[in-house]
Design a protein around this nucleic acid. Structure first.
Lengths: 254, 254
DNA sequence: ACAAAAGTGTTACAATTACACCCATGC
DNA sequence: GCATGGGTGTAATTGTAACACTTTTGT
C-alpha cells in the first residue's frame, strides 16, 4: 500500500479555536460565544471554526477572529505593524472523543486584545460576550486543569482556555506582550494594572515604574500626558520595539 | 447546511512529526530518518507518521517514537515514572502546500533523550541516524528560521527542527528538563556539558555547581560517585522532583 | 609529580524589594 | 485643602560573575 492511497490514512476535520483575552475593569476576560447548534447547543464556547481547504492555520485563525468578533488580528510572524491584536498559535487538541460528531483536531490560537467595546456575534453563534476567566474556569483547583465552573464551556474548551491563560500569564513575564492588552497609547499605571489583572496580584507602583521605564526598548514616550486615571498627569507611552524582557518582570509568589 | 454534513468541511490528513534531541560528543543532535518513498525520496526527514483513527496525538507520537527508533517515551502529562524520554507537544504546521501529495496538518512533538546507541530504523524509513543540528540547519542565520544546510531536510522539517531546538534551548533555562538528556545517574559536570552543548557556550564549572546543587529539588544525591570523566571522583545525582527552576539558569549572551 | 576534573571561598557587581518622600492635578 | 495617582531616592537583601584556591583521583 502506497502512502498516496487516500484510504491509507483516516480523514480528520481540522478547526481553529480562539482564546481571545482582554483586560476589562481590572479583570482578565475571555471572549465566548453562545453555540447556536448542537452539540452543546446554548452553551458558551470559544469562537472557532473549520480550516478551509486552501488556508494556512494562522490565516484561518485571523479569519475566524474577524468573522466572529470583528477584531483585526496581527500575526507577529508577518511584522506589518497592523493595529490589530496579537495572535499566536497555542496548542493542538486531538482527543478522539473531544467532539461527539466526528474526529476533529483543533489548533487553538491565543489572541491578546485591548479593552474593546462589546463584540458582535457572527457565523453560527447567536451571542458573544466577554466573561471573566475566573468565572469561566471557577476557582482554579491546582490538581486538575479545569475547575468547577458555574456554566461549563462546550467540548474541552475549559482546558484550552486554561492553557491559553497560563500561556499569557507566563509570557508577559519575559516579553513585552502585556502592551498588546493596552490601547496604542497608555500610561505606566495602565500597563501595571494589566499585569495585576492577568496575574491577580498587586505590584508596587514605584518599582514597576522604574522597571518598565528602565528597560531599553520596552516603552517609548509619545510626548503627551493624560489625567484619565485621575491624580497627577501621567506620561503617555507606546510599545517599543523590544519583544523580550531581560531581566524578566518578576511575578510575586502567590 | 448543517455542520453534521461531512461535505461541509474539507478532509485533512493529520500526522505527528518528532524532533528527537540528544547530546552526543558535546554536540546537540537530532534524529533523522532516510525517506524510502517519494516525495523527497532518499532525503533525510524527521521521523513521523499518520495519526490513527482512535489515537490521541500524544499517543501517536509515542507510538511513532517506538516504531521508528525503539525509544520509549514518557509523557509528562501522565506522571507514571517510566524511564523513557521526555515528550511534549511542540507546534502544528499546516501550510496548504507543505506536502505536495495532499493537505497534511502535522502536529510536531519534541522528545529529549539521553545519549543512546545508534537508533534502528523502522517503518517506511530505510535508515536512521543522529545528526548534529548545526549540520542539519547550517550556521544559523538570524533572519530566516532555516539556514543553508548541506543536505536539506524534507518538507518543512528544517523549520520544525529549528523550532524544536529553540524550545529546548529556552526551556532548560527555567526548568529541570536538561536532566532528560542525562542517564538516570549523572554528575554535575555531565549536566553542565549538556547545557554547554545545547546552548553552545562555556559555563563556569564552579558557579554552575553551586547553582544546581543549591536549587532545592533540582538534584538529589544518589550516594555513589564516579570517575568516568577523569579527575577527582564526582558525586552522582538523580533528577529531583522539582520541574521549575526559580531563579532560572542564566544563558550567557552570545 | 603532574594533569584533570570536582568542589569551596571570596569579592565585586547587578537587580529587586520595601520603603520614605515629593509632584501635579481635580474637586 | 485634600485625595489621588505619578514619579524619584535610598538602604537592605538576594543572586550572579569572576576569579583564587583546595581536593582527589588516574597515569
Amino acid at each position: 500500500m502506497s502512502p498516496y492511497d487516500p484510504s491509507a490514512f483516516p480523514p480528520f476535520a481540522v478547526t481553529v479555536d480562539l482564546v481571545v483575552l482582554t483586560v476589562r475593569r481590572h479583570a482578565l476576560c475571555a471572549l465566548v460565544v453562545r453555540r447556536g447548534e448542537p452539540p452543546f447547543q446554548g452553551r458558551w464556547a470559544l469562537p472557532g471554526g473549520f480550516v478551509r481547504d486552501d488556508e494556512d492555520l494562522a490565516t484561518a485563525a485571523a479569519r475566524e477572529l474577524v468573522e466572529e468578533t470583528g477584531l483585526c488580528a496581527h500575526d507577529p510572524a508577518s511584522p506589518a505593524p497592523g493595529n490589530g491584536a496579537h495572535l499566536e498559535q497555542l496548542a493542538t487538541y486531538g482527543d478522539p472523543r473531544r467532539d461527539p460528531r466526528m474526529r476533529v483536531v483543533s489548533v487553538a490560537h491565543l489572541v491578546l486584545a485591548p479593552d474593546l467595546p462589546a463584540p458582535r456575534a457572527g457565523g453560527d453563534a447567536n451571542g458573544a460576550r466577554w466573561a471573566s476567566v475566573t468565572d469561566l474556569l471557577g476557582r482554579e483547583d491546582p490538581a486538575g486543569r479545569a475547575g468547577e465552573e458555574a456554566e461549563p464551556l462546550a467540548f474541552d474548551h475549559a482546558v484550552i482556555l486554561a492553557d491559553g491563560v497560563e500561556r499569557a500569564r507566563s509570557k508577559i513575564e519575559y516579553s513585552s506582550l502585556a502592551t498588546a492588552f493596552c490601547p496604542p497609547e497608555f500610561t505606566v499605571g495602565e500597563l501595571r494594572r494589566v499585569y495585576e489583572a492577568v496575574w491577580g496580584v498587586a505590584l508596587d507602583p514605584r518599582n514597576f515604574h522604574r522597571k518598565v521605564t528602565g528597560t531599553p526598548g520596552f516603552l517609548v514616550p509619545s510626548g503627551g500626558t493624560t489625567t484619565r486615571q485621575g491624580g497627577r498627569p501621567a506620561q503617555l507611552f507606546r510599545a517599543g520595539g523590544a519583544t523580550v524582557l531581560n531581566p524578566p518582570m518578576l511575578r510575586p509568589e502567590v
